[in-house]
Design a binder for these strands. Structure first.
Lengths: 147, 147
DNA sequence: CACGATTTAATCGTATACGATTCAAATTAT
DNA sequence: ATAATTTGAATCGTATACGATTAAATCGTG
Protein backbone atom coordinates (compact mmCIF):
# COMPACT_ATOMS: atom_id res chain seq x y z
CA UNK A 1 0.00 0.00 0.00
CA UNK A 2 2.66 2.49 1.12
CA UNK A 3 4.92 1.12 -1.60
CA UNK A 4 2.31 1.82 -4.27
CA UNK A 5 2.11 5.45 -3.29
CA UNK A 6 5.84 5.81 -3.14
CA UNK A 7 6.21 4.45 -6.65
CA UNK A 8 3.44 6.67 -7.92
CA UNK A 9 5.00 9.74 -6.36
CA UNK A 10 8.18 9.04 -8.21
CA UNK A 11 6.42 8.48 -11.49
CA UNK A 12 4.23 11.52 -11.07
CA UNK A 13 7.01 13.93 -10.26
CA UNK A 14 8.90 12.76 -13.34
CA UNK A 15 5.78 12.95 -15.49
CA UNK A 16 5.02 16.50 -14.43
CA UNK A 17 8.62 17.60 -14.74
CA UNK A 18 9.29 16.11 -18.14
CA UNK A 19 5.94 16.96 -19.68
CA UNK A 20 6.32 20.56 -18.61
CA UNK A 21 9.77 20.50 -20.19
CA UNK A 22 8.51 19.16 -23.51
CA UNK A 23 5.67 21.62 -23.44
CA UNK A 24 8.13 24.45 -22.96
CA UNK A 25 10.24 23.21 -25.85
CA UNK A 26 7.28 23.14 -28.23
CA UNK A 27 6.31 26.70 -27.38
CA UNK A 28 9.92 27.84 -27.43
CA UNK A 29 10.43 26.65 -31.00
CA UNK A 30 7.23 28.29 -32.20
CA UNK A 31 7.86 31.57 -30.37
CA UNK A 32 11.53 31.99 -31.19
CA UNK A 33 10.90 33.63 -34.61
CA UNK A 34 8.88 36.29 -32.80
CA UNK A 35 11.66 36.91 -30.29
CA UNK A 36 9.57 35.58 -27.42
CA UNK A 37 10.15 32.97 -24.74
CA UNK A 38 7.44 30.77 -23.26
CA UNK A 39 7.03 32.73 -20.01
CA UNK A 40 7.00 35.97 -21.99
CA UNK A 41 4.20 34.55 -24.12
CA UNK A 42 2.22 33.74 -20.98
CA UNK A 43 2.66 37.36 -19.94
CA UNK A 44 1.30 38.50 -23.29
CA UNK A 45 -1.66 36.13 -22.97
CA UNK A 46 -2.45 37.64 -19.58
CA UNK A 47 -2.07 41.21 -20.85
CA UNK A 48 -4.13 40.61 -23.99
CA UNK A 49 -6.95 39.78 -21.61
CA UNK A 50 -6.24 42.46 -19.00
CA UNK A 51 -4.18 45.35 -20.28
CA UNK A 52 -2.65 48.00 -18.00
CA UNK A 53 -2.34 46.11 -14.72
CA UNK A 54 0.24 46.37 -11.97
CA UNK A 55 3.29 44.13 -11.60
CA UNK A 56 1.67 42.51 -8.60
CA UNK A 57 -1.54 41.70 -10.47
CA UNK A 58 0.42 40.39 -13.41
CA UNK A 59 2.50 38.25 -11.11
CA UNK A 60 -0.62 36.72 -9.65
CA UNK A 61 -2.05 36.02 -13.11
CA UNK A 62 1.02 34.16 -14.33
CA UNK A 63 2.08 32.80 -10.95
CA UNK A 64 5.45 34.53 -10.77
CA UNK A 65 7.15 36.63 -8.12
CA UNK A 66 8.82 39.98 -8.51
CA UNK A 67 12.26 38.41 -8.58
CA UNK A 68 11.42 36.75 -11.88
CA UNK A 69 8.98 39.26 -13.28
CA UNK A 70 10.89 42.52 -12.89
CA UNK A 71 13.85 41.63 -15.12
CA UNK A 72 11.59 39.79 -17.55
CA UNK A 73 9.23 42.71 -18.02
CA UNK A 74 12.20 45.02 -18.48
CA UNK A 75 13.48 42.81 -21.28
CA UNK A 76 10.06 42.83 -22.90
CA UNK A 77 9.99 46.61 -22.66
CA UNK A 78 13.36 46.85 -24.40
CA UNK A 79 11.98 44.70 -27.20
CA UNK A 80 8.98 46.99 -27.58
CA UNK A 81 6.19 44.65 -26.44
CA UNK A 82 5.07 46.84 -23.54
CA UNK A 83 6.00 49.72 -21.26
CA UNK A 84 6.23 50.19 -17.52
CA UNK A 85 4.85 53.34 -15.93
CA UNK A 86 5.10 54.31 -12.30
CA UNK A 87 1.60 55.13 -11.07
CA UNK A 88 0.89 58.76 -10.20
CA UNK A 89 -1.80 58.11 -7.60
CA UNK A 90 0.20 55.47 -5.76
CA UNK A 91 3.88 55.52 -6.60
CA UNK A 92 4.43 52.06 -5.24
CA UNK A 93 2.56 50.64 -8.20
CA UNK A 94 3.96 50.14 -11.67
CA UNK A 95 1.44 49.75 -14.48
CA UNK A 96 2.28 47.48 -17.38
CA UNK A 97 0.71 48.48 -20.70
CA UNK A 98 0.96 46.76 -24.07
CA UNK A 99 2.52 48.61 -26.99
CA UNK A 100 1.13 48.60 -30.53
CA UNK A 101 3.52 45.82 -31.51
CA UNK A 102 1.82 43.46 -29.06
CA UNK A 103 -1.64 44.29 -30.38
CA UNK A 104 -0.59 44.09 -34.01
CA UNK A 105 1.09 40.71 -33.72
CA UNK A 106 -1.49 39.10 -31.45
CA UNK A 107 -3.36 37.22 -34.15
CA UNK A 108 -0.28 36.13 -36.04
CA UNK A 109 1.33 34.73 -32.91
CA UNK A 110 -1.69 32.96 -31.44
CA UNK A 111 -2.61 31.47 -34.80
CA UNK A 112 0.92 30.19 -35.30
CA UNK A 113 0.86 28.63 -31.82
CA UNK A 114 -2.48 26.95 -32.40
CA UNK A 115 -1.29 25.66 -35.76
CA UNK A 116 1.58 23.89 -34.04
CA UNK A 117 -0.60 22.49 -31.29
CA UNK A 118 -2.99 21.03 -33.84
CA UNK A 119 -0.09 18.94 -35.15
CA UNK A 120 -0.14 16.97 -31.92
CA UNK A 121 -3.60 15.61 -32.66
CA UNK A 122 -4.94 16.12 -29.21
CA UNK A 123 -8.66 15.47 -28.96
CA UNK A 124 -10.93 17.94 -27.28
CA UNK A 125 -11.83 15.37 -24.65
CA UNK A 126 -8.18 14.74 -23.88
CA UNK A 127 -7.63 18.43 -23.33
CA UNK A 128 -10.52 18.73 -20.98
CA UNK A 129 -9.67 15.62 -19.05
CA UNK A 130 -6.02 16.57 -18.61
CA UNK A 131 -6.83 20.11 -17.62
CA UNK A 132 -9.38 19.00 -15.07
CA UNK A 133 -6.82 16.67 -13.49
CA UNK A 134 -4.12 19.29 -13.48
CA UNK A 135 -6.38 21.81 -11.85
CA UNK A 136 -7.40 19.25 -9.26
CA UNK A 137 -3.76 18.63 -8.40
CA UNK A 138 -2.99 22.32 -8.52
CA UNK A 139 -5.69 23.21 -6.02
CA UNK A 140 -4.67 20.41 -3.68
CA UNK A 141 -1.07 21.54 -3.81
CA UNK A 142 -2.07 25.09 -2.99
CA UNK A 143 -4.40 24.00 -0.19
CA UNK A 144 -1.57 22.18 1.48
CA UNK A 145 0.63 25.27 1.41
CA UNK A 146 -1.90 27.24 3.38
CA UNK A 147 -1.75 24.94 6.41
CA UNK B 1 -14.60 25.18 -33.20
CA UNK B 2 -11.24 26.81 -33.76
CA UNK B 3 -12.09 29.20 -30.94
CA UNK B 4 -12.62 26.30 -28.55
CA UNK B 5 -9.18 24.93 -29.25
CA UNK B 6 -7.57 28.31 -28.97
CA UNK B 7 -9.10 28.87 -25.55
CA UNK B 8 -8.12 25.41 -24.41
CA UNK B 9 -4.56 25.92 -25.57
CA UNK B 10 -4.33 28.98 -23.42
CA UNK B 11 -5.81 27.26 -20.42
CA UNK B 12 -3.69 24.17 -20.83
CA UNK B 13 -0.40 25.99 -21.13
CA UNK B 14 -1.18 27.91 -17.97
CA UNK B 15 -2.34 24.77 -16.18
CA UNK B 16 0.84 22.88 -17.05
CA UNK B 17 3.06 25.84 -16.23
CA UNK B 18 1.50 26.71 -12.90
CA UNK B 19 0.96 23.16 -11.68
CA UNK B 20 4.57 22.33 -12.42
CA UNK B 21 5.53 25.43 -10.46
CA UNK B 22 3.45 24.47 -7.43
CA UNK B 23 4.77 20.96 -7.62
CA UNK B 24 8.32 22.28 -7.60
CA UNK B 25 7.57 24.45 -4.58
CA UNK B 26 6.22 21.56 -2.58
CA UNK B 27 9.27 19.45 -3.24
CA UNK B 28 11.58 22.41 -2.69
CA UNK B 29 10.25 23.02 0.80
CA UNK B 30 10.54 19.36 1.76
CA UNK B 31 14.01 18.93 0.29
CA UNK B 32 15.58 22.13 1.53
CA UNK B 33 16.52 20.69 4.98
CA UNK B 34 18.49 18.00 3.16
CA UNK B 35 20.32 20.58 1.04
CA UNK B 36 18.69 19.32 -2.13
CA UNK B 37 16.79 21.01 -4.94
CA UNK B 38 13.94 19.39 -6.87
CA UNK B 39 15.99 18.55 -9.99
CA UNK B 40 18.77 17.23 -7.77
CA UNK B 41 16.24 14.95 -6.09
CA UNK B 42 15.16 13.66 -9.50
CA UNK B 43 18.80 12.86 -10.19
CA UNK B 44 19.01 10.92 -6.94
CA UNK B 45 15.81 9.03 -7.78
CA UNK B 46 17.34 8.05 -11.11
CA UNK B 47 20.64 7.02 -9.52
CA UNK B 48 19.02 5.05 -6.71
CA UNK B 49 17.53 2.91 -9.46
CA UNK B 50 20.58 2.83 -11.74
CA UNK B 51 23.83 3.61 -10.01
CA UNK B 52 27.08 4.27 -11.89
CA UNK B 53 25.81 5.50 -15.24
CA UNK B 54 27.27 8.04 -17.68
CA UNK B 55 26.28 11.69 -17.86
CA UNK B 56 24.54 11.00 -21.14
CA UNK B 57 22.46 8.15 -19.71
CA UNK B 58 21.58 10.21 -16.67
CA UNK B 59 20.58 13.10 -18.89
CA UNK B 60 18.23 10.84 -20.80
CA UNK B 61 16.69 9.49 -17.59
CA UNK B 62 15.89 12.92 -16.19
CA UNK B 63 15.38 14.65 -19.51
CA UNK B 64 18.17 17.18 -19.16
CA UNK B 65 21.01 18.24 -21.43
CA UNK B 66 24.67 18.56 -20.60
CA UNK B 67 24.41 22.31 -20.25
CA UNK B 68 22.18 21.85 -17.21
CA UNK B 69 23.53 18.59 -15.92
CA UNK B 70 27.26 19.24 -15.83
CA UNK B 71 27.20 22.13 -13.33
CA UNK B 72 24.41 20.50 -11.34
CA UNK B 73 26.27 17.22 -10.91
CA UNK B 74 29.40 19.14 -9.95
CA UNK B 75 27.46 20.89 -7.18
CA UNK B 76 26.12 17.56 -5.98
CA UNK B 77 29.64 16.19 -5.94
CA UNK B 78 30.81 19.11 -3.80
CA UNK B 79 28.00 18.35 -1.37
CA UNK B 80 29.06 14.73 -1.15
CA UNK B 81 26.06 13.04 -2.78
CA UNK B 82 28.04 11.44 -5.62
CA UNK B 83 31.29 11.46 -7.54
CA UNK B 84 32.25 11.82 -11.18
CA UNK B 85 34.87 9.53 -12.65
CA UNK B 86 36.28 9.68 -16.15
CA UNK B 87 35.97 6.24 -17.69
CA UNK B 88 39.21 4.35 -18.33
CA UNK B 89 37.98 2.32 -21.30
CA UNK B 90 36.44 5.29 -23.09
CA UNK B 91 37.68 8.60 -21.80
CA UNK B 92 34.78 10.46 -23.38
CA UNK B 93 32.46 8.97 -20.79
CA UNK B 94 32.07 10.17 -17.24
CA UNK B 95 30.53 7.74 -14.77
CA UNK B 96 28.38 9.10 -11.99
CA UNK B 97 28.39 7.04 -8.79
CA UNK B 98 26.49 7.60 -5.56
CA UNK B 99 28.42 8.18 -2.34
CA UNK B 100 27.53 6.60 1.00
CA UNK B 101 25.66 9.72 2.03
CA UNK B 102 23.14 9.19 -0.78
CA UNK B 103 22.59 5.56 0.19
CA UNK B 104 22.36 6.33 3.89
CA UNK B 105 19.81 9.11 3.53
CA UNK B 106 17.69 7.44 0.87
CA UNK B 107 14.99 6.18 3.18
CA UNK B 108 14.81 9.29 5.32
CA UNK B 109 14.43 11.52 2.29
CA UNK B 110 11.90 9.45 0.36
CA UNK B 111 9.82 8.85 3.46
CA UNK B 112 9.77 12.54 4.25
CA UNK B 113 8.70 13.32 0.69
CA UNK B 114 5.92 10.75 0.75
CA UNK B 115 4.74 12.04 4.10
CA UNK B 116 4.27 15.48 2.60
CA UNK B 117 2.54 14.18 -0.51
CA UNK B 118 0.07 12.25 1.64
CA UNK B 119 -1.05 15.58 3.09
CA UNK B 120 -2.53 16.49 -0.27
CA UNK B 121 -5.07 13.68 -0.04
CA UNK B 122 -4.65 12.54 -3.57
CA UNK B 123 -6.54 9.33 -4.30
CA UNK B 124 -4.80 6.46 -6.03
CA UNK B 125 -7.21 6.72 -8.95
CA UNK B 126 -6.46 10.41 -9.34
CA UNK B 127 -2.76 9.69 -9.52
CA UNK B 128 -3.20 7.07 -12.15
CA UNK B 129 -5.58 9.12 -14.24
CA UNK B 130 -3.40 12.21 -14.16
CA UNK B 131 -0.26 10.29 -14.94
CA UNK B 132 -1.87 8.50 -17.86
CA UNK B 133 -2.98 11.84 -19.32
CA UNK B 134 0.39 13.43 -18.79
CA UNK B 135 2.15 10.56 -20.47
CA UNK B 136 -0.27 10.73 -23.36
CA UNK B 137 0.49 14.41 -23.84
CA UNK B 138 4.18 13.82 -23.34
CA UNK B 139 4.37 11.19 -26.05
CA UNK B 140 2.39 13.33 -28.48
CA UNK B 141 4.66 16.26 -27.83
CA UNK B 142 7.72 14.15 -28.49
CA UNK B 143 6.24 12.58 -31.62
CA UNK B 144 5.68 16.02 -33.11
CA UNK B 145 9.32 16.96 -32.51
CA UNK B 146 10.50 14.07 -34.60
CA UNK B 147 8.73 15.29 -37.75
C1' DC C 1 47.22 3.26 -40.85
C1' DA C 2 45.33 7.84 -41.60
C1' DC C 3 41.94 11.21 -41.45
C1' DG C 4 37.41 12.81 -41.49
C1' DA C 5 32.99 11.91 -39.07
C1' DT C 6 30.85 11.01 -34.80
C1' DT C 7 30.28 10.95 -29.90
C1' DT C 8 30.51 12.79 -25.16
C1' DA C 9 31.38 16.47 -21.86
C1' DA C 10 32.36 20.96 -20.77
C1' DT C 11 31.65 25.77 -21.57
C1' DC C 12 29.20 30.00 -22.88
C1' DG C 13 25.33 33.27 -23.37
C1' DT C 14 20.75 34.25 -22.34
C1' DA C 15 16.54 33.70 -19.71
C1' DT C 16 14.03 31.87 -16.06
C1' DA C 17 12.81 30.92 -11.07
C1' DC C 18 12.67 31.76 -6.08
C1' DG C 19 13.54 33.26 -1.32
C1' DA C 20 15.48 37.00 1.17
C1' DT C 21 16.63 41.62 1.54
C1' DT C 22 16.24 46.46 0.66
C1' DC C 23 14.01 50.72 -0.17
C1' DA C 24 10.56 54.04 -0.90
C1' DA C 25 5.77 55.14 -0.60
C1' DA C 26 1.42 54.72 1.66
C1' DT C 27 -1.55 53.39 5.43
C1' DT C 28 -2.50 52.72 10.23
C1' DA C 29 -2.23 53.48 14.99
C1' DT C 30 -1.37 56.26 18.85
C1' DA D 1 0.76 64.48 12.98
C1' DT D 2 4.45 61.42 13.57
C1' DA D 3 5.97 56.83 14.48
C1' DA D 4 5.23 51.98 13.32
C1' DT D 5 3.61 48.91 10.04
C1' DT D 6 2.49 47.38 5.63
C1' DT D 7 2.89 47.18 0.75
C1' DG D 8 4.96 46.94 -3.95
C1' DA D 9 9.14 46.79 -6.74
C1' DA D 10 13.73 46.21 -7.35
C1' DT D 11 17.87 43.77 -6.26
C1' DC D 12 20.84 39.92 -4.87
C1' DG D 13 22.47 35.13 -4.55
C1' DT D 14 21.90 30.60 -6.02
C1' DA D 15 20.22 27.08 -9.14
C1' DT D 16 18.08 25.69 -13.17
C1' DA D 17 17.34 25.29 -18.33
C1' DC D 18 18.64 25.21 -23.20
C1' DG D 19 20.86 25.86 -27.71
C1' DA D 20 25.28 26.51 -29.68
C1' DT D 21 30.03 26.00 -29.62
C1' DT D 22 34.28 23.80 -28.33
C1' DA D 23 37.44 20.15 -27.29
C1' DA D 24 38.95 15.64 -26.74
C1' DA D 25 38.50 10.74 -27.71
C1' DT D 26 36.91 7.08 -30.65
C1' DC D 27 35.28 5.08 -34.79
C1' DG D 28 34.83 3.99 -39.71
C1' DT D 29 36.45 3.52 -44.15
C1' DG D 30 39.64 3.77 -47.75
Amino acid sequence: MKKDFSTLDKQLCFAVYETAGEFTKLYTSVLKPFGLTYPQYLVLLALWEHDRITMKELGELVGLGTGTLTPMISRMQEKGWLRKERSVEDERNVHVTLEKKAHNEKNTITERVNEEIQLCNIALSEYEELMARLNELHSKLRERTKL
